[in-house]
């Protein structure tokens, strides 16, 4: 079992938000994470992370004027790490029922407090055998292009021949993006090897 990295604190059909157990250590942007809802494993691509104060009304204040190193701030005010939290969002891109992988949304959202795990290379490779998940990312809005590029870079690293994988993915994108050649070019420039 891969190491758990956090816990779901907000969930909907299309995405979930999880709080990291370790402050400032969210999974990297675009990486593949999974959580569980009953027998169904839900896969998501990390689409953003943020570190904020645990109380929405209280913003952190600058404390380092007198310190030589950044680490010294935390050392001299150990309570700080308890007052801050790191959350990350994941866009759901598929799920697994039994042994079968589906690259579309699961029937139900994840439960709150479900553990979230970072997928290992083997699982990433298996999941990215199909590019059907790209269509979900293409429609994500916001920084969708950045997200697509990041997730493909991640997935490529798990493959034997990253270049071959990226070319196949690029061709899939070329079809998905059809007339939107500027978007396509932007993404291709971000994933080129």
């Amino acid at each position: 079992m891969p190491a758990k990295i956090g816990e779901v604190i907000e969930a909907s059909s299309g995405e979930f938000t999880a709080q990291c157990y370790e402050l400032h250590q969210p999974p990297s942007f675009g990486s593949l994470v999974k959580t569980r809802e009953g027998e169904v494993e839900i896969y998501g691509v990390v689409s953003g992370a943020a570190t904020t104060s645990i109380e929405p009304g209280r913003r952190p204040i600058a404390r380092g004027r007198e310190e030589a190193e950044e680490e010294d701030i935390y050392r001299s005010s150990p309570q700080l790490s308890k007052l801050l939290r790191t959350d990350f969002n994941a866009l759901i891109v598929g799920h697994k029922e039994g042994q079968k992988l589906h690259h579309y949304l699961p029937p139900r959202p994840a439960k709150i407090h479900s553990f979230v795990y970072l997928c290992d290379a083997e699982e990433v490779e298996k999941f990215s055998q199909s590019f059907d998940f790209l269509s979900i990312l293409v429609g994500a809005g916001g920084q969708a292009d950045e997200l697509i590029a990041a997730s493909l870079r991640h997935a490529a690293a798990a493959h034997q021949d990253p270049r071959d994988f990226l070319i196949k993915a690029g061709k899939e994108l070329a079809v998905l993006l059809g007339g939107e050649t500027n978007r396509l070019n932007n993404i291709l420039r971000r994933i080129k090897v």
Partner: peptide, 26 residues
């Protein structure tokens, strides 16, 4: 080509990766 705009603003095919992706798709 899938879209006429590609002809108007040709992509940067000097990069072999981009060229290979676009060939047969766009």
């Amino acid at each position: 080509a899938i879209d006429q705009r590609v002809m108007a603003t040709p992509p940067d095919v000097s990069d072999p990766f981009i060229a290979e992706v676009l060939a047969g798709t766009t």
